[in-house]
Simulated assay, not measured.
Amino acid sequence: MTVPLSILDLAPISSGSDAGQALRNTVDLARRAERFGYHRYWVAEHHFADGVASAAPAVLIGLILAGTDRIRVGSGAVQVGHQTALSIVESFGLLDAVHPGRLDLGLGRSGQRRAEAVAALAAPRPAPRTGSQVVDGLLIPPPFDFSKLVASPRWGAYAALLQQPEAVSPDFAEVVDDIRALIAGTYARDGVDVHATPGEGAKVELWILGSSAGQSATVAGERGLPFAANYHVSPATVLEAVEAYRAAFRPSEVLDHPYVLVSADVVVAPTTAEARHLASGYGLWVHSIRTGRGAIPFPTPAEAAAAPWTAEDQALVQDRLDTQFVGTPAEVAAQLHTLQRATSADELLVTTITHDHTDRVRSFALLAEEWHA
């Protein structure tokens, strides 16, 4: 079954370039994606990364909406731990007021207080799987251990800067419910009705994003909302995530059956060799994230080849390298069909990073042509 194909964009900054050019590239790519036939165009929220410019999704979405006509545009995802429900609803309500009916509000659980995150990672858990599995043709690598990264002083400094002093992030389920109530016009606090303008009555499509069988999957299922699962960042847990969502699902006014979107990282070129060459900076880029430096500007293939690299470095990113789909249009489309079959996804979301914008545009163009053939 050929399902809709959509795009996730991080507004990547290439080595030798800057944030302004990265953002102009994002708007250009969104315009082209609309012509290529992609279903929706989402932008991420990342902070403290020299190589990523998508720090303020609502602002970037506004630029993309203004530059396109039909394609759905949204967040993948707003990190709700760093904003109030009201600020999120007002921001996206403003966008919907100007561009009605085209907006997706994707919510992510990121932004827990650091102490909570460290405690959750330290809590007793089943022994992690140590080997890779192949499920219906899809590689499921062993899980990556984020505990050292989350417990690092750098991570703590970043988390502190993203919240007001003494601020306490509410429970994710509470935030989701508050957002839904504000949009529906049913929110009340201490006996007082509260109305968001703009925001109330906005025709936004609400999504929950998650990478595991945790609270995000459960909240999405119990509230009957569509769910986006993360194979491109957490390939080890994608099957658990979609299974937990489907198990928790209850029909709602939005959906009468589960709707699952699954992400994948891809690079497409006319030949396999060229695609691998263009993707060769990916390992170095992921390594910078997983060592706590934040994403570096995406390197050229020559810069990646010249960088010091050890077996330990390789092991740190092997799961991501093994699950990136790199090759010709036919090869990558076949891998995406496998991902869809193994997860029973209703839609796929692809992200691509190359050093040169023209190569990235061509990758999406070649994939769309193959997918819709």
Rank of each mutant, 00 (worst) to 15 (best):
A188P: 00
D193W: 00
A196T: 02
A196Y: 01
A196V: 09
P198S: 04
A202P: 07
L206H: 06
W207R: 13
I208W: 03
A213N: 05
Q215C: 04
S216G: 12
G221Q: 04
E222G: 00
R223E: 03
F227C: 02
A228V: 14
A229V: 04
S234R: 08
S234Q: 12
P235T: 08
E243Y: 01
Y245E: 08
Y245R: 12
A248F: 04
A248E: 07
P251Q: 07
S252Q: 10
D256Q: 15
V260I: 13
V262Y: 08
S263A: 13
D265E: 10
V266N: 03
V268N: 06
V268S: 04
V268D: 04
A269P: 13
A273F: 01
E274T: 12
A275T: 10
A275G: 13
R276G: 13
H277D: 10
L278M: 01
L278K: 03
A279W: 09
G283K: 12
L284E: 04
S288F: 00
I289N: 07
R290I: 02
G292L: 06
R293Y: 02
P297A: 06
P297Q: 06
F298L: 03
P301E: 08
P301Q: 09
A311H: 05
E312S: 12
D322E: 12
D322S: 14
Q324E: 02
F325E: 09
F325W: 13
T328R: 03
A330V: 13
